[in-house]
Design a protein around this nucleic acid. Sequence first.
DNA 1: AGTCACCGTGGCGATGTTCG
DNA 2: CGAACATCGCCACGGTGACT
Length: 422
Amino acid sequence: MKKKILNKPNELISLLPRESISVIQQKSYNVFLVEAQTQVKFSNEIKYTDINKGNKYLFNITFKELVDMAGIDKKDYEYIKEELQKLMKIVVEVVDKENKNNWSLFHLLECVEKEENIFEYSLNWRIVQALKNCDFFTKLDLQQLSKLKCKYSVILYELAIRYEKFKIPKMTIETFRKRTNTEDTYNRMYDLKKHVLDKACKEITKKTDIKLSYDTEKQGRKIAYIDFHIDNNPQVQPTKQVQKLEETEAQIRKNEDYSNEVLFLFEQLPKDEQIEVNKSILSKLLRKHNFEYIKEDIKYAKKQKPKNFMSYLMSSCNLGHYSRTELEKQKVREETEQKIEYHKREQQELLKKIKLKAQELAKKKYSKLGSEEKKKYLKGYDMQLPFFKTTKENYIIEAIQTEMETNLKQEHSIYFIKEKED
DNA sequence: AGTCACCGTGGCGATGTTCG
DNA sequence: CGAACATCGCCACGGTGACT
């Protein structure tokens, strides 16, 4: 399965939707976000300053990618459609930090369209802006998330990762209920523990790279606060992908050296694409794809002259190398040339053999020739230039040899043609 | 296609516990 | 002491998947 890291803006983790979001909706949404983030981040067309109300931001993803990345075990389009429909209904509220009387409401997902196996969706400009320029984000490993089946596990996992390096602040039961949308259900604390807290902590500890536990604190006789504890889970290591990604990002920051392969490919890019960030993109592509294919894809992309070179190149690599057909044609050409070369050599060797054989046969035949026949072969003997003049015997043998060679060649040329037809 | 066991989710009555 | 809350055990319901 493809591994993906979503740099989820903290605003999106902390948001408190009015309706409850199911686990499939949460996971699908994360996949939509990560896909949009990749498309936005690597796009030169969408600049941070350009993102505004006036524009519509469309992204796309294949059904298979969505299902794989989100870890959805259903392959039913209708079901996914219903879930997406519910997701679209979810409205979030953003309050202006400077003036608390000002607010705005928008849908998490603006629209989704399915065409064949591809979903095209659009996100509110605020979300796109947050994805493009997230200063405060949480690095979520979607592979870890995809394993979780309980919606509360997903919420708590995101929260835990957000505060991993510090500590989830102690929160009141009310806050916890708001976050998990359990204000109207599990009225009893025991039920909340049984169905939400225990279950989620258990699932997270069992399946992900962190251990989550909690303590409760009473105020009077009532449980008033929840205090979470996060530990690393040595049994389930953070995916190597996260580490690699962090390394790559560190590399960009430090502007360290890239491998020769990356540098070579970088030089193949069009001049105006030779910017530092593209080295890291190439380095990432090289982790997943063959050097030769990327090289050919760059060549191919250059020919195609797409509007956005890097995103064209990336989709070419990810969608199975547009250049593959070109590369394969080239391979066939090379193979054919090799075959022809081989035949040539074979033929030359055969010619040598024919010459030797003809010489041998000619000598044999000469020994059996009668005087009449010898006279026939001696036609033209007197016409020879004095410098090349040989003995009568050699002259006759050479003549017979030439005759034999022609015959043998004729026989073999039939053989050659037959082989070619095969 | 129908049956059935199993699981997850949400809930409730009875009972135990705690603290003002 | 008793109200308020926590806990236990159990039930109903719907979805799912194996089996016939």
